[in-house]
């Protein structure tokens, strides 16, 4: 039995749950008491590493009504520091309580030498780092007793050491560890602008069978570079990239991340409806998408 076969699958992600939003405290009341079309919510795991109080209360109330995904920012799967078992213990306790449909973090490193950067720092894309990640992901999945899903990150630097394309790196880690992938289409766009990667090539080559969730977000454009700020509406070019990804991979649970300059809940609901409209042709066509078997080209090389 392989590592992947031993994992408890993320329940329900094989079914399309629809379109979600990142859950933010400012919207707790709207989520619970107003009618809205949001299908599910994602929360930042570390924000709920507290014993109780209003945040945990609202999370439990919302979990009773909606599917919830846990999205972490501090796993630091790529660091050379030892795994932080205290952190994993907190995450496991939260998982046991929330029973999330997806548990995700990022394919990056955030801490080193005992210090935390609180940033999603990129890794060199080498075969050796792939092996390093597989080993650590296996440990994490064994500890948590379930599959984790890891997101491609935005980057502002690239390393000479890299010998793989980002999509090759992600495929290799997912194939070797059985982890899922969270496809952030805004991050692909950011990396295209900052590092010159080819977004279409990325989508053509990432293996769809690993993709369990899609993130879409806004960024800040500074002309010669862009920053993945999550503080602005989604740009048209990112909507287009999402449309291409949705067409290619089929119905995948998709959500909007908004972490700063958070608008009224209704504004995000409108943006989510806009996102639905980009997905509609694929949904109307009844395309189950799939599993990365769909290999038509998107126009890139």
């Amino acid at each position: 039995m392989t590592q992947a076969e031993r994992l408890v699958p993320n329940p329900s992600v094989t079914d399309f749950a629809g379109f979600g939003l990142g859950l933010r405290p400012a919207h707790f009341h709207d989520v619970l008491h107003n009618s809205h079309p949001v299908d599910w919510f994602e929360v930042i795991s570390e924000n709920f590493f507290v014993a109780g109080g209003k945040p945990r209360y609202y999370l439990s109330q919302i979990r009773e009504r909606y599917p919830v995904a846990l999205h972490g920012v501090s796993l630091s799967i790529g660091t050379r520091d030892p795994l932080d078992l205290a952190y994993l213990g907190q995450l496991k306790a939260l998982i046991d309580e929330v029973k999330p449909v997806i548990v995700s973090d990022h394919m990056c490193w955030t801490s080193g030498g005992g210090h935390n950067s609180h940033d999603l720092l990129p890794l060199p894309y080498t075969e050796e780092v792939v092996v390093h990640l597989i080993e650590r992901i296996n440990q994490v999945q064994d500890f948590l007793g379930r599959q984790i899903v890891l997101e491609n990150v935005s980057a502002y630097v690239a390393f000479q050491q890299s010998e793989l394309q980002e999509w090759e790196f992600l495929n290799a880690v997912a194939n070797g560890s059985g982890c899922g992938l969270l496809l952030d289409v805004n991050n692909i766009y950011v990396n295209e602008r900052n590092l010159g990667i080819n977004a279409s090539n990325f989508l053509n080559n990432i293996e769809g069978r690993h993709i369990q969730q899609i993130h879409v977000a806004g960024h800040s454009d500074y002309g010669s570079y862009v920053i993945d700020t999550h503080d602005a509406p989604i740009r048209p070019e990112v909507f287009e990239l999402f449309r291409a990804a949705f067409e290619r991979f089929g119905p995948i649970n998709t959500m909007i991340e908004r972490d700063d300059h958070i608008p009224e809940f209704a504004v995000l609901v409108d943006e989510l409806n806009q996102l639905r409209s980009y997905a509609a042709p694929s949904l109307d066509a009844g395309d189950a998408g799939d599993a990365g078997q769909n290999r038509e080209q998107l126009g890139g090389s």
């Binding site: 630097v157 050491q161 900052n194």
Partner: peptide, 8 residues
């Protein structure tokens, strides 16, 4: 020294 030349 570790970065690619085309990093911003």
């Amino acid at each position: 020294r570790l970065l690619t030349a085309d990093s911003p």
